[in-house]
């Protein structure tokens, strides 16, 4: 399990989630993204292309981050969901809350 943050040339923060996003590590992701938000970043992509599974705590932290980023007039996009994760977002109706793209590149192009 690992989170990576990098900023592209236009200032978008791309967060990679390797392994899983669950109750045991969600605070680490939240802290990293909030630090970037406090430092002035406003556009974020979370890339799940290397993510195996996400539990409801992981979904909850994404909802929380989305709200905090929007409060700062920022935008959060999600990318790289595999078929099972896409289904998870659809059944929880969180696909209606997030901008979701097939790849991180598509998310970057949409900003």
């Amino acid at each position: 399990m690992r989170f990576t943050l990098k900023k592209d040339k236009s200032g978008v923060v791309i967060v990679g989630v390797e392994g899983q996003l669950i109750v045991g590590n969600r605070q680490e992701l939240k802290q990293k993204v909030l630090e970037a938000l406090e430092e002035g970043s406003r556009k974020f992509v979370i890339d799940f292309s290397k993510t195996g599974y996400i539990d409801s705590s992981g979904l909850g932290v994404l909802v929380s981050l989305s709200k905090k980023i929007r409060e700062q007039s920022g935008e959060l996009r999600l990318a790289g969901l595999n078929a099972d994760l896409q289904t998870l977002f659809e059944l929880t109706k969180l696909d209606t809350l997030f901008a979701i793209t097939r790849t991180a590149e598509e998310a970057l192009a949409a900003f």
């Binding site: 539990d55 409801s56 705590s57 979904l59 909850g60 932290v61 909802v63 929380s64 709200k67 929880t92 109706k93 969180l94 209606t96 809350l97």
Partner: peptide, 8 residues
């Protein structure tokens, strides 16, 4: 929908 908890 925008609640952080309650989906488990």
């Amino acid at each position: 929908l925008e609640r952080e908890y309650g989906r488990g």
